[in-house]
Design a protein around this nucleic acid. Structure first.
Lengths: 208, 208
DNA sequence: GTCTATATTCGGATAGAC
DNA sequence: GTCTATCCGAATATAGAC
């Protein structure tokens, strides 16, 4: 290390900084839920975390930088979720639980869903490091799907559309409810039956 | 009429006004595509339609009023589309064409998709009259689906999620392309097979 | 309905001391 | 890293003449 700080100091100060950053993120989400994602104001944010507005610039370079932090944060939450899901031995049951969890995740927090899955903030593009997190999520989801049922690229595309569609309808038309969550099992069955049908050697050919 | 204008005058002036309104909408969409939906500025818009910015207020009451006009405009475009689709005699083919058209509609114009299907503008809520248009679209889509295949409420919810999911993935991950458009037929087959499967008695497309 | 002129507010961002 | 002070630009919206 080129600095004169002891490791001890680095740790303590680093911790303080991390803690502050965490509260900044928490309050940013709160503000986003209240006013809308695009309507977050750094003045309001500063007030909520007991900092003057210019002091926030010690934690990010610009407002888009804040969105990038939030994007990374949301993806970490999602990563924690997909990793934590204990898989049932029954492949069907495993996928159903997986889909239900993802739809609930979206419906729990509409603005998080917006930031993670929709291009809604003018000028915002995730940094490579943040984007990497979302790729990781996608990869895990893909692997779990492949392990349980389907690995064909077309299968994956259809499945992703399916999950996204359920999540979107849930968020847009029944926020906080479970109208589309309850359709997860049925939708998964529909998907799996289709995968079966087009498997070579399957009893029934694709419908024409 | 309580005014002293002749009908002739009303017509002429009304036409001028309608024409101007149409160009305002056209340019507003152009601006939205260029800068993002939330980043439209009334200064830029005025410049593009040869009006001083304050003169725009003769056409809407506020910026949210402009979004309402755009929301109505987009829904009219969608309404024209769903009405214009000539239905094939084959129910499956009719639905496939329907879904493909809807996914293409979204993918053609990302910001239109955003405004119509996502809650992205803080504070914006469609007026009752504008919202009525989107209900009309949904009703027509629902009727056509019922005529061709499925009318059960659960069926409709799954189908709507499906279409939305394809559209969303297309817009988000392959804008301007057709990666998910090409999956429309397969997805519809999957859906129809599922509807069939849960109607053990009916061999052919159900009649309502 | 359109203009000029302007009010007003609010936003993000920077400079520089401590 | 946090503060005070301030800049600067941009934005919507209004007033009032023509």
């Amino acid at each position: 290390m080129a600095t004169t700080q002891t490791n001890h100091q680095v740790d303590r100060r680093g911790r303080r900084r991390e803690a502050k950053l965490a509260t900044i993120l928490t309050e940013a989400w709160t503000l986003a839920r209240r006013d809308g994602l695009a309507a977050i104001s750094l003045r309001d944010l500063g007030e909520r975390v007991d900092l003057r507005q210019p002091s926030l610039y010690a934690y990010f370079d610009s407002k888009l930088g804040l969105y990038d932090l939030m994007f990374a944060d949301g993806n970490r939450q999602l990563l924690d979720l997909v990793r934590s899901l204990s898989l049932s031995d029954d492949p069907r049951q495993a996928i159903v639980a997986f889909v239900e969890a993802l739809v609930r995740f979206s419906s729990e927090d509409v603005v998080r869903h917006q930031l993670l899955f929709q291009r809604t903030i003018p000028g915002f593009e995730p940094s490579p490091e943040s984007y990497e997190l979302s790729v990781e999520v996608y990869e895990i989801a893909r692997q779990r799907l492949a392990a349980a049922a389907a690995s064909d690229p077309g299968d994956v595309d259809v499945f992703s559309a399916l999950v996204n569609g359920l999540a979107h309808q849930q968020v847009a038309n029944d926020p906080g409810g479970d109208r589309w969550v309850r359709l997860a099992a049925r939708t998964v069955d529909m998907f799996l039956a289709d995968v079966d049908r087009r498997r070579p050697g399957a009893r029934n050919g694709p419908r024409q």
